[in-house]
Simulated assay, not measured.
Amino acid sequence: MPATAGNLTHDLRGHGFDVGVVDSGTSLLATPVQADLVLLALDLPDLDGLEVCRRLRARSRVPIIGVSARDSELDRVLGLQAGLDDYLTGPVRPSELIAVVDAVLRRVRRPVVEPAVDTETVLHGSLHIDLRAREVRVGGRRVAVTPKEFDLLALLASEPGAVFARRRIMSEVWRDSSGRGTRTIDTHVRTLRAKLGAHSWVVNVPGIGFRLGGQ
């Protein structure tokens, strides 16, 4: 995707970002991760883009935004399960690109839940959320979640039993007060349930939103 990479690089640099470019999955995996964010083309010439994402996620918490021409719900779910923080489909408009990059960087730099000095963990049955380390465990098993999945879970766990309206979730997790984003929330709930190992951890309250459940 040389042309696409060139366009995205031009747009990002035009908005003040310092951009480095590698031309293959192999080169990316061989490069030490020193960036604040990775924009990953999923249609790579040498390796499967989702496999590159999984390998990169296994050794780094750097936020990763996938870029692909494929726009099915399955493609998005597989991307999020592989460790993507967001998913863009081409052709990517400059305004959308910058908005998504800014939103992902804000989420990483400013957690939704700000722990008090004496409250750094949340325990809910077998669920253990470490707010400082941003780690999740279920029954002692570490669960690899993306920054957005962590923020969603931490928000629900901040008030166990409370029902969070979809508009509030979009506002606090995605910093989007427009009220849109049903598909985004549902996709992340689906991947989060799969990673936690049970549908019951995130309960859908029809017509309202979601609450933290149990197992």
Rank of each mutant, 00 (worst) to 15 (best):
M1F: 07
M1A: 14
P2V: 14
A3W: 04
A3M: 14
A3I: 15
A5Q: 13
N7K: 11
L8N: 02
L8M: 12
D11G: 00
G14Q: 01
G16D: 07
V19Y: 02
V21G: 00
V22D: 13
D23V: 01
S24M: 04
S27H: 09
L37F: 07
L37P: 06
V38H: 05
A41S: 13
A41L: 01
L44N: 09
D46Y: 08
D48K: 00
D48R: 00
E51T: 14
R55E: 15
L56K: 05
R59Q: 10
R61S: 15
R61P: 15
V62A: 03
V62W: 02
I65N: 06
V67G: 02
S68W: 04
A69D: 02
S72A: 07
E73N: 09
L74G: 00
L74H: 01
D75E: 04
D75M: 00
L78I: 01
D86Y: 05
Y87L: 12
L88C: 09
G90I: 07
P91F: 08
P94Y: 05
L97F: 03
V100M: 10
R106H: 09
V112C: 08
V112D: 06
E114M: 08
V117W: 10
D118K: 02
T119M: 07
G125S: 12
S126R: 12
L127S: 02
I129N: 01
D130N: 13
A133G: 07
R134W: 04
E135C: 06
E135V: 11
V136K: 10
V136M: 11
G139D: 06
R141T: 14
V145H: 09
P147G: 15
E149T: 11
L152E: 07
A154Y: 08
L155G: 02
S158P: 01
S158Q: 08
S158V: 04
E159K: 12
F164R: 10
A165I: 00
S171D: 14
S171A: 15
V173W: 13
W174G: 03
W174F: 15
D176M: 06
S178M: 08
G181A: 08
R183C: 03
R183F: 10
I185F: 04
I185E: 08
D186R: 12
D186Y: 03
V189S: 03
T191N: 06
T191V: 13
T191P: 05
L192E: 04
A194S: 10
H199R: 05
S200R: 03
W201C: 08
V202T: 01
N204L: 15
V205A: 07
G207E: 12
F210G: 07
G213S: 11
Q215R: 06
Q215K: 01
